[in-house]
């Protein structure tokens, strides 16, 4: 391999790299720092503002410096390395385009309906991304459907018979609920967002109970002390 070969290849590679980097970074070329080492001749693609820019194969850096740079590049830019890189890229391309290229036997139809639930916590906030398991009627162990609720707490599945279908929801943080669902053929699916609610009545009742409880406890302690004293 002659050094001339490397110079051409590197100049090309530099240009490609440079263009790619420019597109990715969306900066004006004068502000982008090239990723490859700069002091190589014949890279006309580099912007004219760079101090070591060279025209027509002449170099603005010392020959020794250039030789040193080329020697370094031989490690990573040898011909086998380039072939291997291209092979890997081709393989990745094949793999990435796989589903659309090879999955001709699969079809998707749009469907309407289904049996859906919205899972929410007691305060009306949705249980998002909670684990859901659906058990068919008379089935205890193997779930008919598994999945997670969406970002608004919804989960939909398509029952194959009348119920009751048992739903078990678990948010992974200690909240769990079970519900039996029976699909109703006349029921139209609708989006229902319950209002965020603060349960004032329960809160007031609870606070009153707490105060009464401690008042009673204090009274009891006082009475007992009065008896023992």
């Amino acid at each position: 391999m002659s050094s001339e070969y490397f110079q051409t290849r590197l100049a090309d590679a530099h240009m490609d790299f440079w263009a790619g980097y420019y597109v990715a970074s969306r900066k004006p070329p004068s502000e982008v720092r090239p990723l490859l080492i700069a002091n190589i001749g014949r890279d006309g693609a580099r912007p004219s503002s760079r101090p070591c820019q060279a025209a027509g194969g002449t170099t603005s850096v010392s020959s020794r410096n250039r030789q040193e740079t080329l020697r370094r590049f031989r490690g990573t830019h040898s011909r086998p390395y380039l072939f291997f890189t291209m092979f890997c890229m081709a393989l990745a391309l094949c793999l990435l385009s796989g589903p659309s290229a090879f999955a001709h036997a699969m079809h998707a139809f749009e469907v309407q309906g289904g049996l859906g639930v919205r899972v929410e916590y007691d305060d009306g906030y949705p249980a998002t991304h909670a684990e859901v398991r659906v058990y068919a009627p008379d089935e205890e162990t193997h779930p008919y459907a598994e999945g997670i609720t969406d970002a608004e707490g919804y989960f939909v599945f398509f029952p194959t018979s009348e119920g009751p279908w048992r739903l078990v929801v678990d948010d992974g943080m200690g909240h769990r609920m079970e519900k039996n669902l029976a699909p109703d053929p006349t029921h139209h699916n609708f989006v229902y967002l319950s209002p965020r609610r603060i349960r004032w009545m329960e809160a007031l009742f609870g606070v009153a109970l707490i105060l009464a409880l401690f008042a009673g406890y204090g009274r009891w302690v006082a009475v007992r002390k009065g008896k023992t004293d």
Binding site: A203, G206, V207, I210, L211, F214, A215, Y217, G218
Partner: peptide
């Protein structure tokens, strides 16, 4: 006891 009752209520709410 009153202090505890108040803080219990605060925790509850």
């Amino acid at each position: 006891i009153p202090k505890t009752a108040l803080l219990t209520a605060a925790f509850f709410v």
